[in-house]
């Protein structure tokens, strides 16, 4: 616990006039253009958008893996130039080191920082305890379920006491029930650590349920289409997902993303066409459900 408590109150992410393009044989292809986002210290912000819109590209630039073609990324006013333990990252593919036990995985960042063995062992045990994983500290990752792996992934990223936590579709590979539990665990940890979170997902419910604010991106080349504050009170319960407030937010975001998805697909399906279908699902037309 002591390892991570010291980090609160910092962690302001700012992305200004950001653009990123790839060089290909046909010239440069813009992945993200003209984007501004920010995350206040201790805020939970999600980015949603149609697939291929560059939301992961944006996150990787914040992590320091990709250099922006224009603009800049800063954390607490300092420009991000390369990856660092100050920005913890959680990947969709878990990316635990298969040759390290659960505890060794969690210790990795502390080991890189030069902390001695007994201290980092103690720190790792404490963190694993918080995530309910102390019984598995000596297991290798391939013996764990997906949900457990991702819990280790989150704990590993938090072990070094980062100012911000970046998550790239972390629950995308999990089944629906596990995903709900993981969302709860993430919310709990975030509230305890008061860390800033930037969360990329394509799951609109997940984004609304978890976030203080949601950015919606346009189809490629990606830019920010809308910024939606989520005024739902905390602590949030699963039952809130049925509330009219939640559903209204959901409907709004859905229609924003649908527009962009249709654009991304080349506009082959027109909205009118869908409405014309007029199929009934539990008393709602297909167009409404979509």
């Amino acid at each position: 616990m002591s390892v991570i408590e010291a980090t609160a109150a910092a962690g302001r992410i700012e992305v200004k006039n950001f653009a990123l393009s790839y060089e290909t044989i046909d010239g440069s292809v813009a992945a993200v253009t003209d984007t501004q986002i920010y995350v206040k210290p201790g805020e939970f912000v999600s980015i949603v958008g149609p697939s291929g819109c560059g939301k992961s590209t944006l996150l990787n630039a914040v992590a320091g893996f990709l250099k922006p073609t224009a603009g800049m990324v800063t954390v607490d006013g300092e420009e991000v130039k390369s990856p660092s333990a100050e920005r913890g990252m959680v990947f969709q593919q878990y990316s635990l080191f298969p040759w390290k036990t659960v505890r060794e995985n969690v210790e990795f960042g502390l080991k890189m920082r030069g902390m001695d063995r007994s201290r980092r062992e103690r720190a790792a045990r404490t963190l694993l305890g918080l995530a309910g994983l102390e019984a598995f500290e000596k297991h290798y990752p391939d013996r764990l379920s997906g949900g457990m792996k991702q819990r280790v992934g989150i704990v590993r990223a938090l072990a070094t006491g980062p100012k911000v936590l970046l998550l790239d579709e972390p629950f995308g590979a999990l089944d629906a029930q596990t995903r709900v539990i993981m969302q709860q665990i993430l919310t709990n940890m975030w509230q305890r650590l008061k860390i800033s979170v930037l969360f990329v997902t394509h799951d609109i419910d997940e984004a609304i349920f978890l976030s203080d604010r949601v950015y919606c991106m346009t189809a490629r080349p990606g830019s920010i289409k809308a910024e939606i504050p989520i005024p739902l009170e905390r602590p949030r319960q699963q039952s809130m997902m049925m509330s009219s407030e939640f559903l209204a937010l959901r409907r709004g975001l859905m229609s924003l993303i649908r527009e962009e998805s249709l654009k991304a697909m080349g506009g082959e399906i027109s909205d009118q066409g869908l409405q014309g279908l007029n199929i009934n699902l539990h008393g709602q037309s297909l167009a409404d459900v979509l």
Binding site: A63, G64, F65, S82, P83, S84, A85, R87, G88, M89, F91, S95, L96, F97, F108, G109, M112, R113, R156, A157, T160
Partner: peptide, 8 residues
């Protein structure tokens, strides 16, 4: 990449 953003 995971190792790099853990400070390796």
């Amino acid at each position: 990449r995971a190792a790099r953003c853990l400070g390796a």
